Computed example of a mutant assay.
Amino acid sequence: MAFATIQYQSRSLQKASSLNVIFPDDPAMPGPWGAFYLLHGLSDDHTIWARRTSIERYVAGLPLVVVMPDGGRGWYTNSADGETAYEDDLVKDVVGLVDRTFPVKAERAGRAIGGLSMGGYGAIKVSLKHAEMFASINSHSGAIGFPRLDPEKAKIRSPEAHRIFGASAKGGPEDPFAIVERIDHGRIPAIRIDCGTDDFLIDQNREFHKHLDDLHIPHEYQEYPGSHDWVYWDLHIREALAFHARNLKLVKA
């Protein structure tokens, strides 16, 4: 596999930004390839997945581009105050750049998205809002219920929360619990969610799993031993990759 860092001008953020990409370099694998958009957590950036996991080794031999964008501390959301537009950056600027630059299958059937913590929230939220863009989703230890927290509690975890989500995000356009109630269930991407049993976000994940069950939405849900750390994520990204490889038809079922 080959590895590249790309600097680009984000029209949505109105600033320079960066992303890392892992992609096949085998002439026997000419494409079109699948694309997996892999999102980082609140305290990290676009370099963290490559630095803290063996993701490059895990995708070796797959006709897959792994795209790791920089979501800042923006919750992959267009902020309520209009200051930042990290959702638009991802679905317009980053996806558009990858579609133009790499020999990927530039359609829903060729794209997957996933992430951890803030990135797990982002993957679920963005893919539900833009279900026409992604075939499959995964979330590790996702902060899926963050918009439903009491605003003061949310502010402690993320001081940017009020600026990004507004005074009350519960039930709004950035709340995955509310989004999944409103959209066409026949177009929901394949979903996989996992979380460690000692993770401080386990209750949010259990609640979203129950919410999907109550709505009769098919999905995979797993709890494993572990906490909110890279030991857990490095282990379970491998299962997410296998999940996406099946859904993108990169391997025989």
Rank of each mutant, 00 (worst) to 15 (best):
F3C: 05
T5M: 08
S12G: 02
S12T: 00
L13T: 02
L13K: 01
K15G: 08
D25H: 08
D25Y: 12
W33G: 00
A35H: 07
F36G: 00
L39D: 01
S43P: 11
D44M: 12
H46G: 01
T47E: 04
I48M: 09
W49G: 03
W49P: 14
R51F: 12
R51K: 11
R51G: 04
E56N: 10
R57F: 13
Y58G: 00
L62D: 00
L62E: 01
V65L: 15
V65C: 14
V66Y: 06
V66N: 00
D70Q: 00
G71C: 03
R73P: 11
W75L: 09
T77G: 08
S79N: 07
S79T: 12
A80S: 10
G82Y: 09
G82T: 01
G82A: 11
G82S: 08
E83S: 15
D88M: 07
D88S: 15
L90Y: 08
V91A: 05
K92L: 15
V94D: 03
V94K: 00
V94Y: 03
R100S: 13
T101D: 03
F102R: 01
R111I: 07
A112I: 04
A112C: 13
I113W: 13
G119P: 14
Y121C: 11
G122H: 05
A123S: 15
S127D: 09
K129A: 10
H130T: 07
M133H: 09
S136I: 08
S139V: 10
I144S: 04
G145W: 02
D150M: 11
K153G: 03
R157A: 12
S158I: 10
E160V: 12
A161F: 09
I164T: 04
G166D: 01
G171N: 03
F177A: 08
I183P: 15
P189L: 10
D194E: 03
D194N: 11
D194T: 01
C195V: 14
T197W: 07
T197K: 04
F200R: 03
F200I: 05
R206I: 11
R206N: 12
E207F: 07
E207Y: 09
F208G: 05
L215T: 05
L215V: 09
H216Y: 08
H216C: 14
I217W: 11
Y221P: 15
Q222G: 05
Y224M: 02
P225V: 03
S227V: 01
H228D: 03
D229I: 08
D229A: 02
V231N: 06
V231L: 07
Y232A: 04
Y232C: 05
D234H: 03
E239D: 14
E239R: 11
L241A: 04
H244Q: 12
N247E: 14
L250H: 00
K252C: 14
